[in-house]
Design a protein around this nucleic acid. Structure first.
Lengths: 345, 345
DNA sequence: CCCACATGTGAGAGCGCTCTCACGGAGAGC
DNA sequence: GCTCTCCGTGAGAGCGCTCTCACATGTGGG
């Protein structure tokens, strides 16, 4: 037989079920049964079909299949986040990997959809509402996002990553932001620190609120003072600024819990500028466990999030949801965090 | 009219072309024409159809459309890279964003496919070979990957990100690694440095080789000594180790070009340990321009890669390729890098 | 007045698959 | 020997769309 033509772009038309059936001397229905693993096929027919499939290089046409089954076997991961930074963060990467693993194992494909701007929303709504995906994993970190409600309305099985602050009652998977923050602050207290400040994140989404709540939890009956709470926007700069403010307002502080590693890095710089030694004068704990945390001087004690596991759980939950929409199940799933102690506290 | 039922999971069957046609009192063909923007429709018919579409919330069924058009309007981004780290890097994120922008503008969807392990390859090959995507953007950083050849064989329009070291003659888009390295080293020489060392990356893929070539280019007729070249694996640790080696082999060196920012950070640490001041005693330049580069002390002078632009160009090239496979065009596209000077050199 | 031609429209085929249904034959039970 | 199952199989409908083709109508030129 002749070698496959080397000419790129000349796509030999792909064989159809019909052709496989002809080659295997059986009917289209039998080939379909073999392809889909039906037990109702004789060993001989099965063998003949398998040979034909192998020989002709048959791959099922997904469009035709979807048309009749009303499934696409693909799950959309919608990233509704204007900030570019999502990709730089291990958070996103971990979720993609976890979800990808789980979905691949179930024979589904991950379709990545970005909704960066307001205008993208329409496109995404139409895409999902139009049934291009069987289900949705939604990464929407900020407050008043219309997409959750839109998906709920369209009746598309949806799982949200990160507990939504309010709104649509969709199932979610989140990490234990509150518990992680509590652990971090408790650890600082156990180390004998008494004036524990915090650089909190923005309070317009759940993680920011929860991490601040965790801080309060840990302080418990002890009084905490307003002057020991500053707010940042997760970035390094904002952390540096916030730390400078804190030092001014409460010069006697001896520990800081920053709600992100980047803010912790900023805080580190502000502390250095102010001549405070870390951890001797001021102990510092971050949140996220970025690679960066190992590279600072001193290396950062921080709270690690199980991002891969989160992606995996989101995927597995949405698959279950698509399978049996009405089975009883918990609305949310909270995954534990872990305190990683290094040199900064 | 009644409010939409709040019961999640109860998907009202989506309206079909047929129903829209009935509602608008025209034929299926006319609705199709309106949907697809044909000019051969009277204003009245168009208006009636648009009203019906609006009213019924019609969204075309993509499976049915694909079945007849033989297009899926989705482009696969295949990440063939076992290393988990891809996601943490701005490289990947930039490409995704650039490609996503460009494809969205062209009405295409980005389908993300991960091929982490050897076993995934089969799955991916079948997926793409099976025509689930109209074209492929391939991110395959390491040497002997069978996927490029497989896609070429299948005749699927494919663009590779990063110039392949060898193998299949597929079109590619890359950043000017060689030129970037050359610029960095030239800059060091212009600053009066005479003993310029380099920490090169792995030589099993193109970027690593090119950055080392750029180093050699800049040194030009000047002799460079083997003892001033060390190799790392892009990671921080490897950079620290390589720097320590370099200091041992060539204690008089007064500048270092590291082929990645992470290695530069490692080098920074090694230099500090050795008591060398940066940039006073030893000037240091990295490559990548990670966020990290602004956070070190001193901040890192480094080479920035136009990753978003690269994603955009890859997408636009693959779209052109899918459109007119045989139009004459350059095989590769090299995008310029930019030297960002900060404090380390 | 008839023909040529452009223009908007609808009928209908068919994309490649799944799945229901009916059918023939083999084996079991009477 | 006859019916009754059960099993493997094939015929055929139909998923929702696009697109070709033919048709009706309107317009202008000979």
């Amino acid at each position: 037989m002749a070698v496959t033509s080397g000419t790129a772009g000349v796509r030999r038309p792909r064989p159809t079920l019909e052709e496989v059936a002809a080659y295997a001397q059986v009917s289209r229905a039998t080939v379909s049964r073999v392809i889909n693993g039906s037990p109702r096929v004789s060993p001989e027919a099965r063998a003949a079909v398998e040979r034909a499939v192998e020989r002709l290089g048959y791959v099922a046409n997904s469009a035709a299949r979807s048309l009749v089954t009303q499934r696409t076997d693909s799950i959309a991961l919608v990233v509704s986040e204007p900030d570019v930074r999502v990709f730089a963060e291990p958070f996103f990467g971990g979720i993609v990997r976890g979800a990808s693993q789980e979905l691949t194992a179930a024979g589904k494909q991950l379709v990545l959809i970005m909704a960066q701007s307001e205008g993208d929303r329409d496109r995404v709504e139409r895409y999902v509402g139009g049934g291009h995906a069987d289900a949705v994993l939604l990464l929407s970190l900020h407050g008043a996002d219309p997409l959750p409600a839109a998906f709920a309305r369209a009746g598309v099985p949806t799982v949200i990553g990160g507990r939504p602050l309010s709104g649509a009652e969709l199932p979610y998977v989140d990490v234990d932001n509150r518990g992680g923050a509590r652990d971090a602050v408790s650890y600082l207290l156990e180390q004998g620190r008494t004036q524990v400040a915090t650089i909190a994140g923005p309070q317009d989404h759940c993680a920011g609120v929860d991490r601040l709540s965790g801080y309060r939890d840990a302080l418990g009956p002890r009084r905490y003072r307003r002057s020991l709470i500053a707010y940042g926007t997760y970035g390094q700069q904002s952390g540096e600024q916030a730390m400078a403010d804190l030092l001014e307002r409460g010069p006697r502080l001896d520990a800081v819990f920053a709600a992100s590693d980047l803010m912790a890095v900023g805080a580190l710089r502000a502390l250095r500028k102010a001549g405070r030694r870390v951890p001797d004068d001021v102990a510092l704990v971050g949140f996220d466990d970025l690679d960066l945390a190992t590279m600072t001087e001193p290396a950062l004690t921080t709270v690690r999030q199980p991002t891969v596991e989160m992606g995996r759980q989101m995927a597995s939950l949405v698959l279950a949801l698509a399978e049996r929409p009405h089975a009883p199940r918990a609305r949310g799933l909270i995954l534990p965090t872990e305190l990683v102690t290094r040199q900064s506290a």
